[in-house]
Design a binder for these strands. Structure first.
Ligand SMILES: [Zn+2]
Ligand SMILES: [Zn+2]
Length: 733
DNA sequence: AGCACGCCGACT
DNA sequence: GTCGGCGTGCTC
């Protein structure tokens, strides 16, 4: 009787594995990493075997037996099992979350981890004789097929119909064959060398990266806009692929565009397998399996792809490493960038983190020597991104947010036939509705936050919780009917610019106007072609695309960041400013970027405008050091919410008391700051509080948090309070 | 989480 | 007397 116990991870908030008896017939074959169906509570669940062992802390009589083994071989290699284990421990997630929940839906449901067979057709010997001479199309199809095995897709692409295939099959002129996808795995990927002349910096970067293949190294590739980072990725990838390795490319949510994929597709003669959030369950399942089986040599994906199984993984590229979409913002708040670095470490392969505006965390690691720091400071093309100019708008008469000088400038660029982008990060017509007589502001009852006034369609929207209401006719306080809108949103700007620049109607690009990836891609394409001379855009237009005919970018206002409670606000503002500036201009048409600000003297704004991002980073890093913020200390935050404020306050007080002795005696390096309400204390009817833990020692912080989870979960009377831990938080608002 | 168990108030 | 409210406990 050896190894007759399986320790299984199940999707449940319980922070432990569950032990099951392995039926005799499965004992020789069951391995860690296989899925099993097990009886659980009053039903059945699919789980993942994490360990096969001979011992259990439970009496054997209490153990149930596995009902079904669902896999013939493990779903993951050892490294993938290890990274999931690490993820669970680091982010304080129950094992079931890390091992099971971070799988495609279909695999969670227990569907087989097998790609379906590929259906193809093949002409039979003398099949032609079975077709009458009148059936011209059928004969044409037969001719076209020749001796090859062809798929339905190929047949349709060649202009033949499914019906023709069916007819041929009925007359037995052709037959259907089923091919197993495993049979067509080719680890060889042909690379198309375009014979490009690279800048010295690019070539040097490629050499440094490829020199690190087959060992762990984190590499920060800091390259200014237009310095040719992508070409560096591609040539480094080529080297790894040539060694029959797989490559994982991680990009921000917004960065996974057809253009991005096209750049890879035209250089590598191999399917680029995509894993992103807009795939449906089947597509994600199939892509995942292709990665697992090694059929996919290149996987391009967003956050969740960081855990894609890749048996021959040899290189990880993570582009726009500063992008916040790599950090999951609900339930299990992992940061794919940090998971990717850990994965590279476990797998002993290099990882390239690329950005024009690296995060302070990665930059700090680079200057500390933990990461290899490569820089691309020259531009590959002649284009010089425009140097932003700050326009002081103190005491300026603004018209719907725009200064007169800016309007004149816009007119000049539009008259010259060029494109102008007005960047305003505020959807809707106006950010508030107000009573003209008494100053009452229309607020969402669930959030205590002002409603945004939208005009198309006409309604009030809470941007905190999504609540939509009709626009009030009367003041709720004094009864006056003079309700006015206050401030400027993209809709109001659109209305104003429409009448101000009649000949060039503006196109508004925001979430309300452009729905989904398809429409955005279409719009971006049109803009690149030079259509739509005047553009109004939010965040959506800030990233990823270069518009050659765009010669003027106006940034209406980024001053909010300067007063924000969010400790990363200024860092984000700087990144945004650099990105927005990078949209404009080309060699023959140099661009211009104007930033309106009430604080033109602000150091960071000035450094960004001098295009000295290195100086921005040093400045911000110094500020973080002075205040002992990350990366100089590690942070974790406990977020708690309840329907009554007293419950959350009580929860925080209780947690503080419970943990106090542990912090005093075991975790002296961990400091718990006093609990405080969230910046937006009430949201969607819930009252929210935060408790920040800080420490210079990651291990102690982690251990203290583990203790904290145990204490909270052992405590009764807290069921009304929802809470979660956020490790390395993006913000503490 | 999801579900059963059990202990109290207010109904036919 | 019982119907159902939710606070508590358990899941190998
Ligand atoms: Zn609201
Ligand atoms: Zn009023």
């Amino acid at each position: 009787m050896q190894n007759h116990i399986a320790r299984v991870a199940l999707i449940t908030p319980v922070r432990r594995l569950f032990d099951y008896l392995i039926p005799n017939e499965n004992q020789p074959t069951l391995e860690a990493g296989m899925r099993v169906r097990v009886p659980f509570a009053r039903g059945h669940k699919v789980g993942l075997v994490v360990e096969v062992t001979s011992q259990s802390e439970w009496t054997l009589a209490k153990l149930k037996a596995i009902s079904d083994v669902l896999d013939d071989s493990p779903l993951f290699d050892t490294v993938n099992m290890q990274i999931r284990h690490w993820l669970g421990e680091y982010y304080m997630a129950p094992p079931g979350e890390a091992y099971m929940n971070l799988l495609p839906k279909k695999l969670k449901a227990g569907e087989p981890a097998l790609l379906p067979s590929i259906e193809k057709w093949q002409a039979n010997v003398d099949g032609k004789l079975l077709v009458t001479n009148q059936a011209k199309r059928q004969l044409a199809l037969l001719d076209w097929m020749g001796q090859r095995q062809v798929s339905l897709v190929e047949v349709k692409q060649a202009g033949f119909s499914r019906d023709l295939l069916n007819k041929l099959q009925e007359s037995q002129a052709i037959s259907r064959v089923e091919l197993r996808p495993e049979g067509s795995i080719s680890k060889q990927v042909n690379y198309r060398d375009l014979g490009l002349t690279l800048l010295d910096e690019q070539q040097a970067a490629i050499n440094r990266i490829t020199a690190q293949l087959n060992q762990f190294k984190a590499i920060l590739l800091q390259g200014v806009t237009g310095s040719g980072k992508t070409e560096v990725y591609i040539q480094a990838m080529a080297k790894a692929l040539q060694q029959n390795q797989q490559v994982l490319v991680l990009v921000p949510e917004i960065g996974l565009t057809p253009q991005t994929l096209q750049r890879f597709a035209e250089r590598f003669d191999s399917e680029i397998v995509v894993l992103h959030s807009e795939l449906n369950d089947t597509e994600r399942y199939l892509a995942w399996l292709k990665a697992k089986m090694g059929l996919a040599r290149i996987v391009v994906g967003t956050r969740s792809a960081v855990l894609a199984p890749m048996p021959d993984l040899g290189l990880i590229i993570l582009d726009e490493e500063h992008d916040i979409s790599f950090k999951q913002q609900d339930s299990l708040r992992y940061n794919a960038r940090d998971v990717a670095v850990k994965r590279a470490h476990l797998q002993q392969v290099p990882i390239v983190l690329g950005s024009a505006t690296p995060s302070l965390e990665s930059y700090y690691n680079a200057i500390q020597g933990r990461y290899l720091h490569l820089k691309l400071q020259q531009r590959a093309q002649q284009s010089q991104p425009p140097q932003p100019v700050v326009l002081d708008i103190k005491d300026q008469p603004l018209q719907d947010g725009l200064a007169p000088r800016v309007l004149d400038l816009m007119a000049k660029h539009l008259d010259a036939g060029n494109q102008v982008l007005v960047f305003l990060n505020r959807r809707g017509f106006a950010p508030a509705l107000m009573c003209h007589e008494c100053g009452w502001i229309y607020e969402c009852q669930r959030c205590d936050h002002h409603f945004t006034y939208h005009q198309s369609p006409r309604q009030a929207q809470c941007h905190q919780c999504g609540e939509i209401t009709p626009v009030p006719r009367q003041c709720h306080s004094c009864g006056s009917t003079q309700i006015i809108d206050w401030g400027v949103g993209t809709e109001k700007l659109e209305a104003f610019l429409k009448q101000r620049f009649e000949k060039t109607p503006p196109l508004r690009v925001d979430r309300d106007n452009i729905r989904g990836k398809g429409q955005l891609a279409q719009t971006l394409h049109e803009v690149k072609q030079g259509e739509h001379q005047l553009l109004i855009g939010t965040q959506m237009l800030a990233k990823g695309h270069h518009f050659p005919n765009l010669t003027l970018t106006v940034i209406v206002n980024l001053d909010n960041a300067l007063y924000s409670a969010d400790f990363r606000a200024i860092e984000r503002m700087s990144q945004l400013l650099v990105q927005v500036a990078g949209r404009a201009g080309r060699g023959d048409k140099p661009g211009q970027v104007v930033l309106q600000s009430h604080h033109p003297e602000h150091s960071v704004i000035n450094l960004v405008c001098q295009q000295n991002y290195e100086a921005v980073l040093s400045y911000l890093l110094q500020e973080r050091q002075a205040m002992m913020l990350p990366p100089y200390q590690f942070w974790a935050v406990l977020r708690a919410e309840a329907h009554q404020p007293a419950l959350v306050e009580q929860f925080c007080a209780q947690v503080t008391e419970l943990l106090k002795p542990y912090l005093q005696h075991h975790y002296q390096q961990v400091i718990l700051l006093p609990a405080f309400p969230a910046a937006q204390e009430k949201r969607a009817g819930k009252y929210r509080y935060l408790m920040v833990f800080e420490s210079k020692q990651r291990n102690q912080l982690n251990a203290a948090l583990k203790q904290l989870c145990q204490l909270i979960e052992a405590q009764k009377g807290l069921s009304q309070v929802r809470w979660l831990l956020d490790i390395d938080p993006q913000d503490i608002c």
